[in-house]
Amino acid sequence: MKKTQNSLLVSARDIKKIYQVGKVEAPALRGISLDVTSGDFLAIVGPSGSGKTTLLNLLGALDVPTSGSIKVLDNDLSRMSRRKRADLRLKFLGFVFQAYNLVPVLTALENVEFVLELQGVGTERTGQAMNVLEQLGLSEFANRRPNELSGGQQQRVAVARAVASKPKLVLADEPTANLDGENAETLLTMMRRLNEDQGITFVFSTHDPRVVAHAGRVVTLVDGRISKDEAKSRSTLSAEQLKAQKE
């Protein structure tokens, strides 16, 4: 995939999301406007409950806003059926979750292959899935099930699964939350390589400074609103170096 600089992938305008908890309304997002352009390596930061995951779910077409509009690759989500949104996710979006969330009864290779099967790829999908694992240095884990892998290895397989279908945008919800420094660094380096080499756009929700350090753009959420949206130069320091610097 060629890297297309500055093309608009996501355009969110004044989006609000209110959850109904019994009879009480709980606003999670209170009017957010955000553009994500191709090639972004964007971190959404903020304290717990600030709306990071909700925003990520909306950008990933997993949910629809209470009001406002979101366009993903020129598709207006509010006008799309569940089936069309599923199709959009399958073809253009990838997801990485905090708790790895690999299918426990499938091997690493099968987890990656499954996404390709859902896309309708034929028998060549096994080879394609293996290629992705090889590219990300995971081929030795191909035939292991998730319970035979460490947390870091599982999360790397989850990234492989997310990028196997060559998505334009990968949304990662707290991807390093359960990882130690070394594993987090390996994962971030891998994702950054995918961003730079293959032009895959990444949007993270995080409050991990290691992720922020790697991000090219940081959007800060406070109480369901964007309080800061700043572009920054990426750190070249490793996680260990960042930790030492912090101390």
Partner: peptide, 16 residues
């Protein structure tokens, strides 16, 4: 349901 939600997020359609 959590696992199935993940698969849905990855693009699994209702029919599948």
């Amino acid at each position: 349901r959590h696992e199935l939600a993940i698969l849905t997020a990855l693009g699994m359609k209702g029919r599948q």
